[in-house]
Amino acid sequence: MSAIHDTVVAGGAKPPATVKVWDLFVRVFHWSLAGLFLLAYATGDEIEKIHIAAGYTIAGLLALRIVWGFVGPRHARFSDFVRSPRAVLAYMRDVALLRAPRFLGHNPAGGMMVVALIVVLIGTCTTGYMMTTDSFWGAKWVEEVHEAFANLTIGLVVVHVLGVLLASFEHRESLVTAMITGRKRPS
């Protein structure tokens, strides 16, 4: 047994095997956003009504997540995981040296990824909306910027998944499972 399982706390009770980290809203937001983005990306020029509906839904989800980042529970709040560039670089150095500390919520790189994805998706949604207006209807540059944001999102998603896999390996825990159940081991 590991040290955590052998530890007895006051009153003779063992510590919990897992603790709640990700609330239901964060988990539903995460998986809904992933599915809707894939749907929007796949339908692009092919099925415009579905593409636009997915885009508006993503925009709504992003607005809710931004509000939740200020009023939600501890690990959903931006103040819990947004770190300075210096802290992110120091963490990335530790990742490269396979000595990165474990975080119960988002680690500094994960926090940076959350912010980056929100910003890029807002750009994607904004330019997508612009293409439906009279002012920008048929403007090739808006379409190109929209596609660039969408492709940048794909790149960020790939880096995100690789980061999740690396952190899961390094800390011997499934972050995918944690984003499904909302629970992680306490230490």
Rank of each mutant, 00 (worst) to 15 (best):
residue 150 A to W: 09
residue 125 C to Y: 05
residue 59 A to T: 11
residue 177 T to L: 15
residue 19 V to N: 02
residue 103 F to G: 00
residue 65 R to H: 09
residue 177 T to Q: 12
residue 88 V to Q: 09
residue 177 T to F: 11
residue 43 T to M: 14
residue 13 A to N: 11
residue 52 I to E: 10
residue 113 M to D: 01
residue 11 G to M: 08
residue 164 V to H: 04
residue 55 G to L: 05
residue 14 K to V: 03
residue 158 V to P: 09
residue 65 R to P: 06
residue 70 F to N: 06
residue 97 L to A: 10
residue 156 L to R: 11
residue 142 V to L: 10
residue 182 G to W: 14
residue 177 T to W: 15
residue 14 K to H: 14
residue 72 G to I: 10
residue 123 G to V: 10
residue 81 F to P: 00
residue 142 V to G: 03
residue 48 E to K: 15
residue 115 V to K: 09
residue 23 D to E: 14
residue 156 L to I: 02
residue 35 G to W: 02
residue 104 L to R: 02
residue 169 F to E: 00
residue 81 F to A: 05
residue 62 L to A: 05
residue 6 D to W: 07
residue 100 A to M: 01
residue 101 P to M: 05
residue 14 K to W: 04
residue 187 S to Q: 12
residue 53 A to C: 08
residue 30 H to Y: 14
residue 172 R to Y: 05
residue 26 V to P: 02
residue 34 A to P: 09
residue 171 H to N: 04
residue 156 L to M: 13
residue 147 E to F: 11
residue 150 A to Q: 02
residue 17 A to L: 15
residue 76 A to Q: 08
residue 62 L to Q: 09
residue 178 A to M: 02
residue 151 N to K: 11
residue 9 V to Y: 14
residue 128 G to L: 06
residue 59 A to E: 13
residue 64 L to P: 01
residue 153 T to C: 14
residue 172 R to H: 09
residue 186 P to V: 03
residue 123 G to Q: 05
residue 137 W to S: 11
residue 159 V to S: 07
